[in-house]
Amino acid sequence: MNKIVEKEFFSENVAKLVIEAPEIAKSRKPGHFVIIRIDERGERIPLTIAGSDIEKGTITLVVQKVGVTSAKLLALNEGDVIRDVVGPLGKATHIENIGTVLCAGGGVGVAPLLPIVEGFKKAGNRVVTVLAARTKDLIILEDQMREFSDEVILMTDDGSSGRKGLVTAGMEEVIKREKVDMCMTIGPAIMMKFAALTTKKYNIPTEASLNTIMVDGTGMCGACRVSVGGKTKFVCVDGPEFDAHEVNFEEMMSRLGGYKELEAEAYEKYLKNAE
């Protein structure tokens, strides 16, 4: 049982939750995630640990509403409890001072990117962050990103905020103007795929954090498997970060859709009941 001690909406569909989890707060590092289960009937979903407070014994999650479980989570309030929280899971991000780090995030990837941006900045790097969204209203965590980035470039498909264009246009602009030592990308698989193709052209080492479907998060089921360099890897224990130039994004995209119809059905049912 983990109590929600603080909740704050960043936008209509994105909120920060601070929850009690003293042991996890102590052992977690940037890049780690937890698996949560809201209640007795809930499913287990992975969420990145966006921050922690060891003194208070809390961890911070940033959740974006995309389906049933994330919607239920955002419907909880301060004082409510989450039944199960286990972690920290996955391998921590390898953070060192290497010079200039380009961080590219979009969609569901912006929340998990935040602690990594923070980590690289605190390690002394120059951090340039490119955030992409379809339109202005969907841009999240801009202020938080600015706090830990030397520069934030906004890209929207329709030009309603920042520059018009895809994330890759923003990335290329940075790469052409200054030396980039490494790139980190988190977002929809299709975005990461093109981000990886872009940096490959310039031979920039690139890591992608993969948000596959998970069940246990401890290496026990293989639901999270992806192909990296032709080999099958389990994202929850071997990742979530991998060499983006080696990841088979096509396969990953397809696997993310593996339960699409069931998820959509469940979400419709949930919305109906919520009315």
Partner: peptide
């Protein structure tokens, strides 16, 4: 011994193919 083994044959990562553990 909770780690599922796969056979590493072509197509094993298609949707609808899962370990008995999952």
């Amino acid at each position: 011994a909770g780690l599922p083994r796969f056979m590493n044959i072509p197509g094993e990562n298609y949707n609808g193919i899962l370990s008995s553990n999952e």
